[in-house]
C-alpha cells in the first residue's frame, strides 16, 4: 500500500480535551476536501475521541497509530466541509 503523504501536520502535544478536537477541527476546516491531515498528540483520551468525533462530523479516519509509550499519530482525510 502506498504511503499517504499528509497535506498538513499539526502537533497538539500538551493539549487536553476538548481543545485537542477544537484545534484539529479548525485545521480540517481550513483545508480542502480530499486533503489529508496528520495529528500528533499525547492526550490518551483524544486518541479515541478525535477519530470518533471526526467520523461523526463526516471525515474519514485513515489511521490511528501509537508511535511510542505516550504519543499517537492520527491521519484524517477531509471528506466534507
Amino acid at each position: 500500500m502506498d504511503e499517504i503523504i499528509p497535506d498538513k501536520k499539526i502537533d497538539i502535544r500538551g493539549l487536553k480535551c476538548p481543545y485537542t478536537f477544537v484545534r484539529s477541527k479548525l485545521t480540517i476546516e481550513s483545508m480542502n476536501t480530499g486533503e489529508v491531515l496528520e495529528i500528533l498528540l499525547n492526550y490518551p483520551e483524544a486518541a479515541v475521541s478525535i477519530p470518533k468525533s471526526m467520523q461523526d462530523h463526516g471525515q474519514r479516519v485513515l489511521s490511528v497509530n501509537k508511535i511510542n509509550d505516550t504519543e499517537w499519530v492520527i491521519v484524517i482525510r477531509k471528506e466534507r466541509d
Binding site: P18, R23, K25, L26, S30
Partner: peptide, 23 residues
Amino acid sequence: EFTDDQVVRYSRHIILPEVGGKG
C-alpha cells in the same frame, strides 16, 4: 484566524457541527 484565547473562549461553539470555526 482565532487567537489562543478565542479558541478556548468559543470552544463549545466550535465543536458544534452546525457552528465550527466558520460559524
